[in-house]
Design a binder for these strands. Structure first.
Lengths: 165, 165
DNA sequence: CCTTAACTTCACAAATTTCTGAAAGAAGCG
DNA sequence: CGCTTCTTTCAGAAATTTGTGAAGTTAAGG
C-alpha cells in the first residue's frame, strides 16, 4: 500500500472536507473554483500540490486550475513555487500567511476608505450623511491600527501553543 | 426650492457615490442589488428610506428592493422600521451598527471554525494537514476574543472623537 | 367588512459568470 | 536547437444568478 508519509488518507474523508469547506467559502463570497482549490491545498499533508494533482483531485481541467490559482495568488492566499528541476509548478498555503491575508484584507479596507472619503467630500462634510461617512472612515482607520496589534499578539500566542515553526 | 433639511443635495453627486461605493462592495463579494441599496441608505441624510424612495432612486422594481432589503436585514446591516401610521416601511442604517456587523461577521467565522474542526477530526489530529487546520481553528478562536475587545476600545475612542450619540 | 395601499413571492427572461476543449506559449532536456 | 512537458489564453457552451411583471398577502382606514 502506498504509504509514503505516515497515516492513511481516506479519499472519501478528504473529498468530504474539501467540498464542505469550499462551500463555506463560497457562501462567504468567494468564487467556487478558487474555494475548492484552496480547500484542497489546506487538506493536503504537504500543504502544496501541483496543477496536475489539483485537476485530478477536483476533477477539473487544467484551465480551471490555472484561473483559480491566479486568483488565489493575487489575494496572497497561496504562493507559487517553481520546482527547480521540472517545469511543474507547485502551489502552497503558508499556514501562517493565509489567514492573515484573509482577515486583514488591507486592500479591501483601503478601497472602502477611499470611496467613503469621496462620499464625504462630494456630499459635504457638514451634512448628516457626510458625518455618518466620516465616522465610518474613522472606524476603518482605527481598525487598521488595532488589527496590526492583534496580529502581533497572535504570533506570540501561537508560539505559546505550538512553538515556532 | 425644496430644502427641508439644511444643505442642497446634488443628485449627480449622490448617484456617483452610490454607484461607486456599491461597486466596491460588489468587488468584496456582496451581490449587486444589496450593495446599491445599502450605499443609497448610507448616502441619505436621514439614514433611512422607504421602499418606494429606494426604487425611485435606483431605478429598480419593488421586487428587487424587497429582495435586497431582506438580505441586508438578515446580515444586520439595516433595520426595518414600521412607521406607526402608514403601511410604509422604512429601512435604516444604524451608523454604529453596520460596520460592526460587516467586520466581525461572527456567523461566518463560526461556520468556518466548525468546518475546520470537522476537517481535523476526519483527517486526523496527528496528520500534518490536521495540525495545520487545528492551528487555524486556534487562530479564529483567538480572533473572536480579540475582536470583541477591539470593538470595546472603538466605542470609547468614538466617544472621544464625536461625543456619544 | 370592504377597499385600497404597500410589500412579498413566484415564474420566467435576460445577462452574467463559469468551465471546458483546443491552440499557443514558456522552459527544461537531450 | 529542436523536442517534450507543463501552463496559460481564448472562444464558446452550459449553468447560475439577477431583476422584472404579475398575482398574492397583509394591514390600515373608511
Amino acid at each position: 500500500m502506498a504509504e509514503s508519509s505516515a497515516v492513511e488518507r481516506d479519499p472519501k474523508a478528504v473529498s468530504s472536507f474539501v467540498e464542505g469547506f469550499a462551500a463555506q467559502l463560497v457562501e462567504a463570497g468567494m468564487a467556487r473554483m478558487p474555494s475548492r482549490v484552496f480547500a484542497a491545498l489546506l487538506s493536503s499533508d504537504s500543504g502544496a500540490m501541483t496543477s496536475a494533482e489539483l485537476g485530478e483531485l477536483l476533477q477539473v481541467s487544467p484551465a480551471a486550475v490555472s484561473g483559480a490559482v491566479r486568483y488565489l495568488a493575487q489575494q496572497h492566499m497561496v504562493r507559487r513555487e517553481r520546482e527547480p528541476g521540472s517545469r511543474r509548478e507547485r502551489y502552497r498555503v503558508h499556514s501562517d500567511q493565509w489567514y492573515e491575508a484573509l482577515t486583514s484584507r488591507d486592500a479591501v479596507l483601503k478601497r472602502w476608505e477611499h470611496a467613503l472619503r469621496e462620499g464625504v467630500d462630494s456630499l459635504g462634510a457638514e451634512t448628516p450623511a457626510g458625518q455618518r461617512m466620516a465616522e465610518t472612515v474613522a472606524f476603518f482607520e482605527f481598525m487598521e491600527g488595532e488589527l496590526a496589534q492583534v496580529m502581533e499578539r497572535w504570533r506570540a500566542h501561537r508560539e505559546e501553543l505550538f512553538g515556532q515553526d
